[in-house]
């Protein structure tokens, strides 16, 4: 199996120098190409922190270990270079960008990535066609796509917009941080269909979720439990079912 994401003994802190707090503590994880892995774990376990460390957010400092994507060291790249390399994060809390319409934003992002990879810009008709099709698939109307990104969008709409961007950008590796939270039942299915459409032997995904429900729609190859800044248990889809039944206390008690 071709390696996609490989984390080896990764450790990271959050916060300013003197108040830096260790959140990720020797975390190892391996997601091969073509697989979808789920990460579950209690609130405050470090799931979002992991996604920010991998995408290169300011204020998160790696203190040990390594992280590679398709063999390339992620950790010394700028966030935009990681994105151009194909790393995508669907944010737990998508950010409002006033004054920049969704379409303008996505096109700017797409062309910036293409430029960084030495590819041609997407043509206007191709872009419009693609965004119309995907918008329709995700129940995002053309009017919504003209509005400033995430501004005034409902919680569920914002999550659908994250998936819209993911499908437009076609990343090699996507991290979905609680994309299911805030989605109604139909939207959950719509989003899952979008994610499944991107499943590909050349692509990998990490799905962070609290609920088994999403995993009914997006069947993971593996489920990991993250607690205290590391992966403490790994299993198949049945692990998510067990967690739902027994809770973290049950499963963690056994692991400890």
């Amino acid at each position: 199996m071709r390696p996609m994401l490989k984390l080896d003994q990764l450790s990271a802190t959050v916060g300013e120098d003197d108040e830096a707090k260790a959140i990720i503590n020797g975390l190892s994880l391996y997601v091969p190409a073509g697989e979808v892995h789920a990460i579950m774990g209690p609130n405050g376990a470090g799931k979002s922190t992991l996604s920010y460390v991998l995408t290169g957010r300011d204020g998160y400092e790696v203190t040990g270990g390594s992280a590679t994507l398709e063999g390339d060291d992620l950790l010394d790249m700028d966030p935009e270079d990681r994105a151009a390399k194909g790393l995508f994060l669907s944010f737990q809390y998508p950010v409002e960008i006033p004054g920049v319409p969704v379409m303008t934003f996505v096109r700017t992002a797409m062309n910036a990535q293409r430029k960084a990879r030495g590819e041609e810009e997407i043509s206007a008709p191709d872009f419009i066609k693609k965004s119309r099709e995907l918008g329709k698939q995700l129940n995002l109307t053309p009017d919504m796509l003209k509005r400033p990104l995430n501004v005034g969008f409902s919680g569920g709409e914002k999550k659908r917009l994250e998936i819209f961007q993911m499908m437009m950008l076609e990343p090699h590796f996507a991290i979905l941080d609680e994309t299911d939270s805030g989605l109604d039942i139909d939207a959950l299915r719509t989003v899952a269909d979008g994610v499944n459409a991107l499943r590909d032997p050349e692509r990998g995904m990490l799905v962070i979720t609290h609920y088994q429900r999403l995993l009914d729609h997006i069947k993971p190859d593996k489920v990991h439990v993250l607690a205290g800044g590391k992966i403490i248990k790994t299993g198949g889809p049945e692990l998510a079912l067990r967690l739902e039944k027994e809770g973290y206390d049950g499963v963690l008690g056994e692991a400890a």
Binding site: E80, A83, V95, G99, V100, F105, A109, A112, A116
Partner: peptide, 30 residues
């Protein structure tokens, strides 16, 4: 400029300088 907005844009592949310029343009164009 809001660092959260800047990071979000950079995560989508928009280089920092371009993100700053785009946010500023959107800000003044109102």
């Amino acid at each position: 400029l809001d660092p959260n907005q800047l990071f979000y844009m950079r995560q989508r592949g928009i280089p920092e300088a371009q993100a700053r310029a785009l946010l500023t343009e959107a800000f003044v164009s109102e």
